[in-house]
């Protein structure tokens, strides 16, 4: 299989890339690692007339930097770089752990954080971690930069807050306080998340002071399970509490349904994996 014909562009600066997006509008697509876009193009689900390859921007957008309270991750950082980053492993381990669950070794070598988030596959892994970590996403447009909170970024099926002509350039991850865990139920063939739950819990003397839960795979977009968070905060942690809070994991959500997993089954998986993520995160707190 091969994609439909397109014109290929390889800008060497961000301005050049933004200029190409402005010039070609809806006819242009950005290519980062290409491990979501190229399969879609080979199936002719996506047929851009202009492909703007960002490989020339790796020097600018491939980094993992310590900025004090925040770890700044360049959008072209690969899943492998994130998974094996000592900086992330020690200061924002949820992101590093989650990256290790994506695809396989070869896919992690090429796929990028920015590409994955901008693609916004409802079964992608990163949305869960980005939401639970309360990361911010930096979008660069012709008129300047703006920052969007993770909770505002994922808007629906393959839909994000990025406007046409904008490029996701950086993800800003707050230094993690407390323990975290990502629990995933893999589709047995594709390895995508049927359900993935990322949890961060902070607390002292047995009491939960702060809890954040991000869920992917269950709805048309990643979401924060705020009812679960509220049920835990201020309470004394116990296995029973985690189990009862996890009952709210799919509350208010319209679960996806496909031949592999019914809506009921997906909701069930969300509850089970939320309980596991909460328990594991608390143990690491």
């Amino acid at each position: 299989m091969y994609p439909e014909s397109f014109s290929y562009h390889a800008p060497s600066t961000l301005d050049e890339a933004l200029g190409l997006l402005a010039q070609h509008g809806d006819d242009a697509k950005l290519l980062a690692g290409g491990h979501s876009l190229l399969p879609a193009m080979k199936l002719r689900l996506s047929t851009p007339a202009h492909l703007v390859d960002l490989k020339g921007l790796r020097g600018q957008l491939q980094y993992i930097r310590d900025e004090g309270d925040t770890i700044a991750v360049g959008a072209l950082s690969t899943h492998h770089q994130i998974h094996t980053s000592e900086l992330l492993g020690s200061r924002a381990p949820l992101l590093a752990e989650t990256a290790g669950h994506i695809g396989d070794m070869q896919v992690r070598n090429v796929g990028t954080l920015g590409g994955s988030l901008a693609h916004a596959d409802p079964a992608g892994d990163f949305p869960a971690a980005i939401l639970a970590a309360e990361a911010d996403l930096v979008l660069q447009g012709a008129g300047g930069q703006r920052t969007v909170a993770a909770t505002d970024f994922f808007q629906g099926f393959f839909e994000t807050a990025a406007e046409p002509g904008e490029i996701l350039i950086e993800v800003r991850v707050p230094v993690q306080k407390g323990g975290s865990s990502y629990q995933k139920f893999y589709h047995p063939a594709s390895g995508y998340a049927i359900c993935g739950v990322a949890a961060v819990i902070e607390g002292t003397n047995g009491t939960v002071s702060r809890c954040r839960v991000g869920v992917t795979g269950v709805s048309d977009a990643g979401y924060r399970a705020t009812a679960v968070e509220r049920a835990l905060e201020g309470q004394t942690f116990s296995a029973e509490l985690a189990a009862s809070a996890a009952e709210q994991a799919a509350a208010g959500v319209d679960p996806l349904e496909d031949p592999f997993a019914s809506a009921d089954y997906r909701s069930h998986l969300a509850r089970v994996h939320t309980r596991r993520a909460l328990t594991a995160a608390w143990e690491r707190n």
Partner: peptide, 21 residues
């Protein structure tokens, strides 16, 4: 990009060459 039969090493990284232009 599932089966890995097309794996080659590009600049030191194992990649699936059916999913790279």
């Amino acid at each position: 990009s599932s089966c890995g039969s097309c794996t080659v090493i590009v600049d030191g990284l194992a990649v699936k060459s059916c999913t790279l232009l």
